[in-house]
Design a protein around this nucleic acid. Structure first.
Lengths: 225, 225
DNA sequence: TTAGGCTTGATTGCATCCAAAATCAAGGCG
DNA sequence: CGCCTTGATTTTGGATGCAATCAAGCCTAA
């Protein structure tokens, strides 16, 4: 899923530009590039054995996704989020992501739900932050895999991507506190999906997302820059 | 507001690319280019007295906004929406736009509310579809002017832009039927804003948007292509 | 007559070169 | 001593030219 998200628009644009965009996106999401880091066109060009032109295309694509900020005649930086931005993005997720999940309830196969259950269990067992983030992302986004190509699916993936880095910092900080509730939510969601109870699944997911946003108020230090 | 929306990212990218994007965006929104229309890079380049390079930048920007579809080695077209896409976009609007309105209630000045009231009245008096669309857009988007620069504001503007053309076709078809309800909603919203009743304003706006989506079920012919 | 392959034309994609703008540093001035 | 100004350097932005790719039309064969 993560890989698909990285190459989701590989069909569009020149092959070179799309490849560079996919790799740079992966680099940003993995934390290799931190928010605020300068991105030099020529660096990327050399690194990918291409000219600066497809690099510029890639930067535009990532800017459109909100991962990169470009200033005319100045350059490109990995996008930074203020605390207000993060809260807004989570407000949007809180309203939009349950919608997507609900739309997918009738499309979810039984074995897909099995996989979600396994992911929830794996998350509970995991003690590594990085691994937890990967599992959590797959848990949430694979639940919408059926609608991955829809406008709504793309929007949700972008919301995840934009908050990815701060989620990492955030999870590192407050790991252990809200975990029990989060795992509980995951199991509740799986249960609701099994019963094909879309309304309940949406409700729990909304609360689940809201919890993270509210938790932020107790950990503002993540956004001190 | 419309003008601002067109040039909202004028600060980014090369000046030429941004200018071309702004003008092309305006052309698409005004209906000059219909969905599905082919966009040739060289045409735009000649028309704007520039080379194809800033044109490609412009196309990328508009593709990111969902207004243009680009296929590698094939070309660019004005984006088309299926009926399912339109419904999804309206589902998202239904959930996200009230959120934006609610966040802006404390920021709205009294004279801004006066202006909204005037717009609602003007819409009622208007008999021209095109004029109605302009007024309606301003009514809705100027209510969020205070948060225009936020990620949420940008998202809402893009949702409006992507559905713009189909709204036009749609309004032409079902003008007169749902109008009374729509005007009623507008007045209710203004009243709620005056009382600084964010919850009520959000509720009415949600219903208002939902009405259009539901009305679509009775007019599927808009999406016959 | 129709279906398939091929050729030709048009259009996009990428690389190189040149110009313009911004940044950074050093120097002079208040 | 600090601020502003000015210059050189770096980095991006844009134009042109050529190569790659796709689409459509033609020709050939069944």
């Amino acid at each position: 899923m993560t890989k698909d998200a990285a190459g989701e628009e590989a069909a569009s644009h020149g092959a070179a530009g799309a490849r560079i965009a996919a790799r740079l996106r992966e680099s940003i999401l993995s934390g290799e590039y931190a928010p605020g880091a300068r991105i030099r066109q020529e660096d990327l060009a050399d690194r990918h054995g291409a000219s600066r032109l497809p690099v510029r295309d890639a930067l535009r694509m990532l800017e459109a996704e909100g991962l990169v900020t470009v200033r005319a005649n100045a350059g490109a930086w990995v996008a930074t989020l203020t605390r207000a931005d993060f809260e807004e993005l989570y407000h949007v997720r809180e309203r939009v992501e349950p919608l997507l999940l609900g739309m997918n309830v009738p499309l979810l196969a039984d074995d897909a739900i099995d996989r979600l259950e396994a992911l929830a269990a794996a998350m509970e067992a995991s003690s590594d932050v990085e691994e937890f983030l990967v599992l959590d992302r797959e848990f949430h986004l694979s639940g919408y895999a059926a609608a991955e190509t829809s406008v709504l699916g793309e929007l949700v993936v972008q919301l995840w991507n934009r908050t990815q880095h701060y989620r990492r910092a955030f999870t590192r900080v407050f790991r252990g506190e809200g975990d029990r509730s989060a795992h509980h939510d995951h199991h509740l969601i799986v249960g609701a999906l099994r019963r094909r109870d879309a309304e309940e699944a949406e409700r729990v997911l909304g609360i689940h997302i809201r919890r993270t946003r509210l938790e932020l108020e107790r950990h503002p230090e993540v956004f001190e820059q």
